[in-house]
Nucleic acid binder design. Sequence first.
DNA 1: TGTTGGCACTCAGAAGAGCCGAGTGCTAAT
DNA 2: ATTAGCACTCGGCTCTTCTGAGTGCCAACA
Lengths: 350, 350
Amino acid sequence: MELDDRKKRVLQAIVDDYVATNEPVGSKSLIERHNFQVSSATLRNDMAELERLGFIEKPHTSAGRIPSDLGYREYVDSLMKIDTLTQKEQQEIESNISGTVDEAADLIKSATHTLSEATGFISLSMSPRLQKSFLKQIKILMIEPGKALVVLVLSAGVVKDKIVRIPNFITDEQMIKISGAIEKNLTGKPLDEITLVTVETAAKDTEIPSGILRQVLYEAYTAIKQADQLSIYLEGEHKMLAFPDFSSMGRARDLLGTLSDSGMVAGYVNEMENQAQVSGKKDSYMIRIGQEITLEGLDDCSFITATYNMGDTVSGNIGVIGPKRMDYSRVISKMDFVKKKLNEELKKLT
Amino acid sequence: MELDDRKKRVLQAIVDDYVATNEPVGSKSLIERHNFQVSSATLRNDMAELERLGFIEKPHTSAGRIPSDLGYREYVDSLMKIDTLTQKEQQEIESNISGTVDEAADLIKSATHTLSEATGFISLSMSPRLQKSFLKQIKILMIEPGKALVVLVLSAGVVKDKIVRIPNFITDEQMIKISGAIEKNLTGKPLDEITLVTVETAAKDTEIPSGILRQVLYEAYTAIKQADQLSIYLEGEHKMLAFPDFSSMGRARDLLGTLSDSGMVAGYVNEMENQAQVSGKKDSYMIRIGQEITLEGLDDCSFITATYNMGDTVSGNIGVIGPKRMDYSRVISKMDFVKKKLNEELKKLT
DNA sequence: TGTTGGCACTCAGAAGAGCCGAGTGCTAAT
DNA sequence: ATTAGCACTCGGCTCTTCTGAGTGCCAACA
């Protein structure tokens, strides 16, 4: 069922007006604000049709119409055109993201912050998926008898460390040997190709008794495996309280409650990313609207994400969560620009 | 002006009832719930007196009384008695905090989480104040030409690292020399005694050209200085939305907005800690009620903190932020127990 | 002097009535 | 297919009234 041109314009106008005013929009106000060359009665017919098709709905009999989830979906898929940012908007974002930061994590955080500031909504970032990054260096440093520090330097400028317990009687010299052997054999390997076996084989030509060795290697292995754990960072949650859409408090609580479970949110972002990969995404962004979001309490939200890249093989996500009654075009263009800048800056770190 | 015994009981009863019901409490309901051996008229006289003294107030003429900030203050200072936790409550906390964690930061986080769960309020923790910790190890590892990693191992099991830029042409051998020299001379020094001069002198007997050396040392120095930056961790913000005390949305937004500025909150916690030190605190906790809190939007909250210890010289804070209409005794006893457990576990890491 | 019963008074909040007006669907004419 | 016209709907605003918990105060009492 294809919408004719005018109906498309009507839907578009309804979304635009509703986003701008937060009031159900009626046929008459539609005529006033947009110059349709027809009468309000005609629009009423169109609106009845749009409602029958599920694109709009009315909160109650005597009110105007508001877009349904499907309506928003149609809007973002085929009706809206993405704006370009003004010089000033670009500058504001640019000046916040670029700078003299040497750690990728800081850069990503500052991009997240900028994104929340620029949109006025909740922003988030996922840490890079490091399974595909490779080990540039690995060192095991003795801290004190029984305790050592595993330091991993990964491609794309990421460093991870972990304190591990080791047998008490291992000496500095032994540890240097082990560390050297592991480093020699694992450097250059992608994280997801490193298994416990790989690690154990890596150190087999040291002449350390295998009992001792095993435990150290096991700890080194877990440190490596922990390095690619995903983490999520959220910012600007409180901004949602400013929107009338969440004035009911119960809704606000559900929303913030769900978001406080960062594991769950991270999982959901991952899912979005995966689905986009499978379906051969054509857009630079992924978007979920209202009930499409399976997280509890986000029924009145839209969730927009994009993918940033760190080197050739490693990527992560940034995203925005806002009321589904949002200016999609503005948000998407801002997110896109933030992503672009972030990619550029990340490249400089490589 | 000392309160006589009955007036004390009245104030106590008012606080208790108001905390339990969130309704202004009147003379009659006071008689019903507590067995005062006098009539409601007598209590009315007492209440008038308490109001004159500023301990209680009425929201409007025809309502009961609610405690004022001063009333709560009197309550926590001299009226309440701290409960002891039940076996079950203790176990719940214990099982969450102890465990096999090797990093102090993780331990503190899990204590914070437990604290929020146990109280139902916002909890927070400050990272340990590391100025007084001493350097156990410092290593500078080459990552690639122009880039190095400074790794600091501090007393009390804290590790910090920082990627720094260095002159391109420094060789591995040179770096090992520099690293060794710094380590030899700085190990064992408290962070706050290390200055740029200390660092520069530490490496002066390497035979590296001083131009090159200077930059590396400067970077090492900033890495050290960055290590003791305070950070704050907050959890459970959304829980506040459940309380009728914050149902006005505007208040909720102000509260969460203020809390999202972590630097500001950290500064305030610091201030509380310092004032407690100066005034020779006698309690194991610090408490600020309502308007006593200078942070914007926390007028309806109480802010309770305690100090945890990591070794002899290093300490940090944990705390709870809840509605000032809270069960102080319960919260304080829980926080105290969490702190105790946290201290025990931290000790194990040393 | 502290305590009590009694009484007039207050006032927030709930409940109900009425109105307004933006918006709708439908019909008949163009 | 479009339009004018019209009867109808109903959320939300205002206004009023009512209710009841709670108060302050006074005069009597122990």
